[in-house]
Nucleic acid binder design. Structure first.
Lengths: 351, 351
DNA sequence: TTGAAAGCGCTACCAG
DNA sequence: CTGGTAGCGCTTTCAA
């Protein structure tokens, strides 16, 4: 039941491994680093000894001795479900490339500056920012930085994200396709991503000659914002037949408000969310949603960082823009009275 | 595009500070560590030079040289709002004591073992577990471990949490006080905390002679679980007049389901959540909820860890159990037809 | 009080 | 391909 003591009090070092394998420490180091310069047999032997001894390299010593720390920082502002899904992918991708992740949360009391300082103490090789969406990340220029999910003008910052324009186009296209015209957008408030998404919505509507039906309702990014915005919608004399929300949280919140007012989704109003998160897949919401596969975003993010780090920058574009998809669920249907869509399996629409 | 040199190529080291201050490196080290053995004047001078130079100690070197890393690991399983609020407090408390936090998330693909291994590479001085609620944390016995929010039999693990029994008592007391008798519990599924909470509910009911009105509905911890459980409740011939949910997420989800079925809260049914999270405070839910102030939990957690680390364990109790409070909002009212409670300010009930 | 010196565990560079 | 040998930046004895 109790934790077994690690090999008589002292931890296993590279020297132990080298001695036991009958090679020099340098050799052992080469093998552990997967660096070139060791024969297959030696490599195999060292590896097996290391495993036997339960050797784990000391990242402190490793970082201190080398110019790299093999540490990637991840700064996240909100603990949204979507971020968590992204994290999952980041861990996997980083590990695959032999990197560790250092997480740093940006909480209310903790400014970006403080969070970054804490991160800098670890001597990161690179930084991934899931948020906050600022125009000029503080660590820009110091190490490779990639922001995921939004965009910045900073020439030193890469970005990996999905296209808001394409996503909006998919959403509007779907709705128009089943007969909607009065499609409103419940926006994300005043922030970079929200602006891009709103612009995408307006263009998509205009492109279909629905400029006159365009209407943007001020929203935000959390459930509370969604509730308030939904109430704001209900104040109008004539309701839209469909609403495209900024994200799944606000969409779900709006749905709840509608339900409380006896307005049924999708019979009376169709709702589309954004992120295609687990919340959207929840049976009670069963939300049609625009989404990017987080694992893919994560993979591309790490990939990009590694490329920068290796200097193997084969003509890197500063922005990686992926096409989102639209997952069709039960929250959208043709306008006007009709029965609920069958709760069958989800359908995905790609561009 | 390429890595710009930071501060004229080299970073500021302790030697730089020492040289500039005209003292030995050892002296500078003493000052930076706030260790005894330096005169006031020396200390002041060194500190000022360090600040001028923008010196930041290298935690890698520091950790390597000393037996301590001054790093506290935080393992979290779910990215729930409540955990995030807790994190906020942990950062503040750790910083106050001169410790850094290293976060590690437990995602689907990433078992506790892997997360712990990643953490161990940092040579943590201590570990805080927000989850998962296992009976025997893997790092137990290696470093001080405190689990927050639940309880374990492991004698090497401290725990800081609120009392589920007291919380349930507050909830049941409030409901009974305004006239409810048919009070059901929508439980948290099969996990440690859920069991404790269910037991608390049953005792609280029994204590008031309501044993016959006791009924536990199988639930879970996320919104989906809440939805399903709510539907399960609706299958009964006779509905309860009040429901105490396992947490705010399930409570909110249940409320949504009720609303969709035309059952109004609190007119037809009262609902109490748990965690008193931001979700509960959301106007649309306005949920009466049992809660603990996360900052307090966090503070006690770090405090306890430091005590263990310092060995200043003045007869430490293995468990710190705090009293939760009940925040009264609009989701509870006397049973039977009546109008909605005014949306005034929240009321808090302590024990 | 202060300074010199010995590592912490590892990487990286060197000549064999 | 291999085995010495410097350090990385800091803490920590131990004398002075």
């Amino acid at each position: 039941m109790v934790q077994p003591e690690r090999n008589s009090g002292r931890r296993v070092t590279l020297d132990d491994v080298a001695a036991r394998a009958g090679v020099s420490r340098a050799m052992a180091s080469i093998v552990m680093r997967e660096a070139p310069g060791a024969s297959e047999t030696t490599r195999a032997r060292v590896l097996s000894v290391a495993k036997d001894l339960g050797y784990r390299p000391d990242i402190r010593a490793r970082a201190l001795a080398s110019t790299q720390s093999r540490l990637i920082g991840v700064l996240f502002g909100a603990a949204r479900r979507y971020h968590f899904e992204l994290l999952e992918g980041l861990y996997a991708a980083a590990e695959k490339h032999g990197y560790n992740l250092v997480l740093s949360a940006l909480t209310g009391d903790r400014s970006e500056r403080r969070a970054i300082e804490a991160l800098q103490d670890f001597r990161l090789d690179a930084l991934v920012m899931l948020g906050p969406a600022t125009d000029h990340p503080l660590m820009s220029g110091q190490v490779p930085v990639v922001v995921v999910g939004w965009h910045t003008e900073d020439p030193d910052v890469d970005s990996v994200r999905h296209s808001d324009a394409v996503g909006m186009d998919l959403a509007v296209d779907h709705l128009v396709g089943i007969g909607h015209r009065d499609i409103w957008h419940l926006d994300g408030g005043k922030q970079l991503v929200a602006d891009a998404r709103t612009a995408g919505y307006e263009e998509a509507m205009a492109r279909r000659g629905l400029g006159a039906h365009t209407r943007v309702i001020t929203g935000g990014e959390d459930q509370l914002d969604g509730q308030l915005a939904a109430n704001r919608i209900l104040e109008h004399d004539r309701l839209p037949t469909a609403v495209i929300a900024y994200n799944d949280d606000t969409a779900a919140a709006a749905m709840s408000v509608f339900a409380q007012q006896g307005i049924r989704v999708p019979e009376h109003i169709s709702v589309i969310g954004w992120d295609d998160s687990a919340l959207a897949a929840t049976p009670a919401f069963n939300l049609t949603s625009v989404g990017q596969r987080p694992p893919e975003l994560a993979e591309r993010t790490i990939e990009r960082l590694i490329a920068r780090l290796d200097g193997s920058s084969v003509a890197l574009e500063r922005e990686v823009i992926l096409d989102p998809h639209l997952t069709l669920r039960g929250s959208t249907a043709a306008p006007g009275p009709r029965s609920v869509a069958a709760g069958g399996s989800d359908t995905t629409v790609d561009r």
